[in-house]
Amino acid sequence: MLEGKVKWFNSEKGFGFIEVEGQDDVFVHFSAIQGEGFKTLEEGQAVSFEIVEGNRGPQAANVTKEA
């Protein structure tokens, strides 16, 4: 699992990017966010995740919000 911070997330469109120190930003789709209820992320929020190869390159999977 990697750790990063949410760079930005558009809850209307359901996607955004996660910043990872020393690496390129990683695309995140709302469907990759773990948990119940409305799936969104806040700018600057700490998250842990895995990287998988998507249709358009690397993207986040199994995203969990850090306490």
Rank of each mutant, 00 (worst) to 15 (best):
S11E: 09
F9N: 00
I33T: 02
E43D: 13
A61Y: 11
G16P: 00
F15D: 01
E66C: 06
Q59C: 04
E12F: 14
M1L: 12
S48W: 13
S11W: 12
I18R: 00
S11R: 15
G35V: 11
F27Q: 02
P58R: 12
I51Y: 07
K39H: 07
E3H: 15
V52D: 06
F15Y: 14
A67H: 13
V20I: 13
E66F: 13
V28L: 06
R56P: 09
G4S: 03
K65S: 10
G44F: 07
K65E: 07
N62V: 07
M1N: 10
F17E: 02
K13N: 07
D24A: 13
N62F: 11
S11C: 06
I33S: 02
E19A: 15
K39N: 06
I51W: 06
E12S: 13
P58H: 09
V26K: 03
G37W: 06
K5V: 07
N10F: 07
G4W: 02
G35C: 05
W8V: 04
E12R: 15
L41F: 04
T40W: 10
L41N: 01
F30E: 04
W8Q: 03
G57S: 06
E3W: 15
K65D: 05
A46W: 15
I18W: 01
F27S: 02
S48K: 15
A32I: 03
E50R: 06
F30M: 06
A60N: 01
E3S: 15
I18C: 02
N55E: 14
E12W: 15
G57N: 05
I33H: 01
S11T: 13
Q45I: 09
G37D: 11
E19G: 10
Q45W: 14
P58V: 11
E21Q: 14
L41S: 02
F17I: 06
I51M: 10
N55Q: 13
E50H: 10
G16C: 01
T40I: 10
A67E: 11
P58W: 12
K39Q: 14
G22A: 08
V20E: 02
E3P: 10
G37F: 05
A67C: 06
E3L: 14
K13D: 03
D24C: 05
F38S: 08
N55G: 12
Q45L: 09
G44K: 08
G16L: 01
V26M: 05
Q23P: 05
H29F: 12
E21C: 06
G44M: 06
Q23L: 12
S48F: 14
G16V: 01
K5M: 05
F38H: 13
G4H: 02
G37R: 06
G44L: 04
H29V: 03
L41H: 01
A61K: 10
E43R: 15
F49G: 02
W8R: 04
F38L: 09
G35I: 09
